[in-house]
Design a protein around this nucleic acid. Structure first.
Lengths: 231, 231
DNA sequence: TTCGGCGTGTGACGTTCGTCACATCGGAAC
DNA sequence: GTTCCGATGTGACGAACGTCACACGCCGAA
């Protein structure tokens, strides 16, 4: 999928515009509160009034949506440099997703009123435009990965390929990805169930497509993964 | 789902900021090409270089993504006043979706270079920020409707409820919605197959939940629909 | 050490739904 | 009228996978 790759590559190049935002924040004397969180802390939940944005300085957090029956779908994994909740704050209503930390995180918080002030500055509006633009591209991309493949194995294959592009360490032909997610979390990323993820990973291991070690996954047969990702 | 409703309501209130954009376009002497299209015309396709944006003046168009095997998922139905392709143009690469007219349409076209000029004007950047912000909120909302319900009947029920909120005419307790989509198109909106849509609609008709006339659907039992939409 | 909790592996079962196949229907063109 | 063609209706079949149930291994706490 060439389009998906292009979008994915664009992502990392522009991620640094967090710095633009922070520069603007400093220039406009807006206070930003620095906090530390442990694993599993909910920064904000879907439906709460949008108090302000969180800027993820270190760590990772899962952005997810939840159905009334408790079904959870992870829309994206935020990494250091990501801005969380911006669109909800601009929209002025409530957060449209839930953000939960995956590991220890350091965040800055900028309150809604201060952000709106910031938007009045031309550079502020342009910076936010860039951030929203990237967010929209990523969500479109993610929607493609989740809605187009009809089988769970295709979605899992795509996820592994995505990971190998982002975090992959190239080790003698095969790529190794540090896995730090439980099967449950993977299931929520690909809209499937925990058991299915367990079974699919085991099956891929048996077929020599991947190799599962404690703490990492080794991709042995990228071509096979790409073939699975099409279906 | 209270959140979805709030977002949906916000949509119509802000849709008029097309006018802001057009005002800016006129103020900055940007040329905009006016065109007429028939039904089924593809304005642009996923993967093409993003030449510029289309502004839908009249008519409706389907924004969709396509898999390599030809599977199509309709992300949203653009209506008069919607701006198409903005994020792809700002991103500078290629269109990330395909837009096809559903009926006769009138569009304005603004080329990429002119749009980038426009973005330098403070009011231009703010207008685009508003448009992208709404687009992101709608896509998040749509993602929720497509990813959270696991069954096709739940997604169809949600779609009918959405329609009744947008286009519904209240006729003596029941709401009537003008339907102008084929089962095939509905299937692409809810990520299902044509046959499943036919069967589900027929089943709902038998169970007195809806009543299908030629050209319109009457919702007789909204509570039943809402119950189905949860699953 | 024992315990308890969490993550993982795996079997059995049933539902959903996509797919193929075909019939029918309705409108537009002629 | 006839002829087409796209849209719709319906049956049969099977693959995918969600769910329930339970077992095992690991690790930190007591």
């Amino acid at each position: 999928m060439p389009i998906a790759e292009k979008i994915e590559h664009a992502r990392d190049e522009t991620r640094t515009d967090l710095h633009s935002l922070l520069r603007e924040i400093r220039a406009s004397n807006v206070s930003n509160l620095n906090s530390l969180h442990g694993r599993g802390k909910v920064l904000f939940s879907e439906g709460e009034p949008a108090r302000g944005i969180y800027i993820l300085r270190t760590g990772r957090a899962a952005v997810s949506i939840t159905s009334t029956e408790g079904r959870v779908v992870i829309l994206r994994m935020a990494e250091a440099g990501d801005v969380l909740g911006l669109n909800s704050v601009l929209g002025g209503s409530s957060y449209d997703a839930t953000v939960k930390t995956i590991g220890p995180c350091r965040t800055d918080f900028v309150a809604r009123a201060e952000l709106l002030d910031l938007m009045e500055r031309p550079a502020g509006a342009k910076t936010m435009l860039t951030i929203l633009s990237r967010e929209l591209a990523e969500l479109t991309n993610r929607t493609r990965s989740l809605l187009l493949p009809q089988t769970a194995s295709a979605r899992l294959a795509r996820l592994l390929l995505d990971w190998s592009r982002e975090n992959g360490l190239n080790t003698s032909g095969a790529t190794r990805i540090e896995k730090s997610f439980t099967h449950e979390e993977i299931a929520q990323m690909i809209c499937s169930s925990r058991e299915t993820v367990t079974r699919l990973l085991a099956s891929m291991g048996r077929r020599q497509i991947i190799q599962i070690n404690s703490g990492s996954i080794l991709i042995r047969d990228r071509a096979a993964l790409e073939a699975m990702a099409v279906g």
